[in-house]
Nucleic acid binder design. Structure first.
Length: 795
DNA sequence: AAGTAAATTTTTTTT
DNA sequence: AAATTTACTT
């Protein structure tokens, strides 16, 4: 088989070891996707395995799509009776559950609805309200994180409750919400993302026949990015491969970056314990990057204690040094990147470039800069097509038609477009439904069946509106009923949901640019649906797709510039990579900085980012960064300091952090100079910028001190805004503000609060008795205080 | 009931 | 700074 010729010996071995458990430890850029895809092709062409019996599982739709493409290419020209199943964990579960969930006997039917994070949050909010907790002390997001975390560890409600019950009030409340949440979803015949995994595992565990069925179907199972699997996924894999034990997993412990989703690195580290006769194959030759890039990546990951020591090698050239740029602020950073991209394009038209950042929110500045330069770009993640309000509305109509118990979908569309069903009516319907413990849909049916005037609490006009809404959905149900049996084209049903509901007409009536844009999006939705008209796909598949594709997947490989988070970039490679925003608190993220384990994950994330680069790597950071609208001083990331400085070429103008770190201290760099206090560069260069010795509170103070010192930088209009710098004088001159306590309590000042202790003033707003202060108290976070009542003294 | 103004919150990372 | 939620007006 000629495709084998292109593989190196360990790769070839990985492909040819088809029977029994196999663990492939594949470093970054060592060709693991290649190995999996060739292995699939090999099983089919050489081992005469029925494609239908092959399952490959990935984490993202993007990875699954990529793999499908490559397998298709490898098998081009061959006549196959079936296709291998290449799918994400979640869509695999949906596939299984759509067939067999009724065997679970938990009350779910095949027409279950999938709740996305948004839907889940709405349910949780309602639950929190129901137990009479304040939304502020029990944030929905936080509760969902706790619930999801628990679920992914394989716990159920009882285990969660027993784990947390008596620890504290909040956790106990969470356990109650968890329970209610489960009940609500069950009543709505709805599953959240985690449930898809949970129910599948439970189904396989409880029913040997079903387990047997899938074991017989999936004779060869391959798992990509195995280091990212969690306890649930491990259980699923175990059940699926129980019989044949033909399981092949591919992963790299250095690239484990999904700890927040309860990924358990032990799954890969202890693979040989779980499968005692496992064969282990190491892929250590990197084909992607230059030696320099690998050296930098390696230098960083070496700082992790919990890491298997291993070193990738490459036959590639040493390559360029990596490029470094220190910007004054985020804007300058983006302009630098844009200018460099422009230069690359002029010189070497074919090269693909990527801008990688830690969080989605960072994309905006770069988008603007590229647009100004008229550089086309492609952005992955952030807002997906299926997340647009109008698209979600139409999908909600369809979901409701398919599963009328879906209260969340119902609430979303009951008054969209406006039908005169406002808060009063909805409150009444919801209260009645809650009382009777039935769905909103059933409650509406009850209200509308009672004669006019008799229905208590519902005005005749509202009754009429409810009735109308009910008929609209029923009309849709008729059409979807046919479509679910896959007779009627999916696009036709989608059109019905857009037209018959009055949605399109409402938009047309609006006749604004925005409304027209929405209509265009809906047209696009119809186009997407039309894809499902052709072959076996039905409406259900289409809706499932919309729910599961948060669309990191549809990135355009042909685009020359791609922007995305480091997480999204996993598995991809680019000749030129810009790793931006390398600042303390951003990368590593501030929420990971205090936990050694999380910090190690951030480091692995940095490793992933760096190893995306083939030929050139740029690392940039900015001395000032906008956070929640305010520009603050920012410090270089500790990861910069972990790079071998001699492999870095400084492109900053003037002196930079890098020139300081190398020992060439210049007094002109005030940040470098102030960071030097107490330590000398030569003795302990590694510890200078850990982000702890010179922490961000001090940095903020430093920043404001410089500003108050009279540097006339970028004055904001001197309107009623916060009195800073020169404006401070004006505020103090105003007659009312001269209470003794307020003397000198301006941004940058240290104060003492009777309850919170010492804090740093970040912001001052208003005048006279209405002076509001934003103060950061270590251990308590930022507080907004009215100066008059706060009882602050200078510290 | 619906639209607008004001206040409040938001930032990890993904299915 | 932007988006979402709440409060207020018509």
């Amino acid at each position: 088989m000629d495709i084998l010729d292109s593989l190196n010996p360990p790769q070839k071995e990985a492909v040819q070891t088809t029977e029994g458990p196999v663990l492939i430890l594949a470093g970054a850029g060592s060709g693991k996707t290649r190995v999996i895809t060739v292995r699939i092709a090999y099983l089919i062409s050489e081992k005469q395995v029925e494609p239908y019996n092959i399952l490959a599982v990935t984490f993202t739709n993007k990875a699954a799509g990529e793999m499908r493409d490559r397998v298709r290419k490898l098998l081009e020209g061959q006549q196959l009776r079936s296709a291998p199943l290449i799918s994400t964990f979640h869509s695999l579960c949906v596939r299984i559950l759509r067939q067999d969930i009724e065997h679970l006997e938990e009350g779910y039917t095949k027409s279950f609805t999938i709740y996305d994070t948004d839907d889940s949050l709405k349910v949780i909010k309602a639950c929190v309200k129901d137990i009479g907790m304040d939304e502020k002390s029990l944030g929905a997001r936080q509760v969902l994180n706790a619930i999801s975390g628990s679920k992914n560890k394989g716990e159920d409600v009882e285990m969660f409750a027993s784990r947390v019950e008596y620890t504290d009030e909040k956790r106990a409340a969470m356990a109650r919400v968890f329970k209610m949440y489960e009940e609500r979803l069950n009543r709505a015949n709805a599953l959240d993302f985690d449930d898809l995994m949970i129910k599948t595992v439970r189904l396989l565990r409880s029913t040997p026949e079903i387990r047997d069925k899938y074991n017989n179907r999936f004779k060869y199972v391959m798992i990509d990015e195995y280091q990212d699997t969690n306890a649930l996924q491990f259980a699923l894999i175990n059940y699926l491969t129980e019989k044949q034990q033909n399981i092949c997993v591919v992963g790299d412990d250095a690239q484990s970056i999904y700890g927040f989703r309860q990924a358990d690195i032990r799954n890969i580290l202890e693979f040989e314990m779980h499968f005692p006769n496992a064969k282990v194959i190491l892929l250590e030759q990197n084909y992607r990057s230059t030696q320099t890039i690998l050296d930098v990546a390696h230098a960083i990951i070496e700082n992790n204690v919990k890491q298997k020591k291993k070193k990738l090698w490459t036959a590639n050239d040493g390559g360029d040094k990596i490029f470094y740029f220190q910007a004054y602020n985020g804007d300058e950073e983006a302009r630098f990147v844009a200018a460099r991209i422009e230069e690359h394009r002029r010189r070497n038209s074919g090269d693909k470039l990527a801008i990688l950042y830690r969080t989605n929110a960072q994309s905006r500045v770069f988008e603007e800069a590229l647009r100004r330069q008229r550089i086309d770009y492609n952005i992955v993640g952030g807002f997906s097509f299926y997340e647009r309000a109008e698209v979600k509305d139409i999908i909600a109509y369809l979901k409701l038609a398919l599963n009328p118990f879906d209260d969340i979908a119902l609430l979303r569309v009951i008054n969209t477009p406006a039908r005169g069903l406002g808060k009063t009516t909805l409150d009444e319907v919801q209260a009645t439904a809650k009382e009777a413990r039935v769905s909103l849909w059933e409650t509406i049916a009850k209200f509308t069946s009672i004669e006019i005037g008799v229905a208590p609490g519902i005005a005749p006009r509202a009754r009429e509106a409810l009735h109308k809404f009910k008929s609209v959905v029923e009309g849709l149900q008729e059409k979807t009923g046919a479509a679910a049996g896959s007779d009627k084209p999916v696009s036709e049903v989608v059109i019905a949901a857009i037209e018959d509901t009055g949605y399109a007409n409402a938009l047309r009536a609006e006749n604004t640019d925005e409304a027209l844009g929405r209509l265009e999006n809906l047209e696009e939705l119809v186009n997407a649906a039309a894809e499902y008209d052709k072959d076996e796909g039905n409406l259900r598949d289409f809706i499932d797709h919309a729910a599961l594709s948060s669309d990191t997947d549809k990135y355009d490989r042909s685009a020359q510039v791609t922007m995305m988070t480091v997480h999204s970039a996993k598995g991809l490679e680019f000749p030129v990579v810009f790793l931006v925003g390398l600042e303390d608190g951003i990368f590593p993220h501030s929420r990971s900085i205090n936990d050694p384990n999380e910090l190690e994950e951030e480091r692995r994330l940095a490793y992933v980012a760096i190893t995306r680069a083939e030929k050139m790597l740029y690392v940039t950071h900015s001395m000032r960064r906008r956070v929640y609208g305010d520009e603050m001083a920012a410090e270089p990331s500790q990861f910069l300091n972990e790079m071998p400085l001699e492999l870095i070429e400084d492109l900053s103008r003037g002196s930079s952090w890098l020139s300081f770190a190398r020992g060439g201290v210049r007094q002109t760099n005030k940040y470098a100079a102030s960071a030097l206090r107490g330590e000398t560069a030569r003795e302990k260069p590694k510890n200078l910028y850990t982000g702890k010795t010179y922490n961000s509170t001090d940095a903020i103070a430093e920043f404001f001190k410089n500003k108050a010192g009279g540097a006339p930088e970028r004055l904001k209009p001197a309107e009623p805004g916060p009195p800073r710098g020169f404006n401070k004088l004006k505020a103090q001159a105003s007659p009312k503000s001269s209470t003794p306590a307020s003397e000198g309590i301006t941004p940058g000042a240290h104060v003492r609060h009777p309850k919170y202790g010492k804090g740093l003033v970040l912001r001052r707003e208003g005048t006279g008795d209405n002076v509001k202060l934003t103060v950061s108290f270590p251990g308590f976070g930022q507080k907004k205080l009215i100066e008059k009542f706060a009882n602050l003294e200078k510290a």
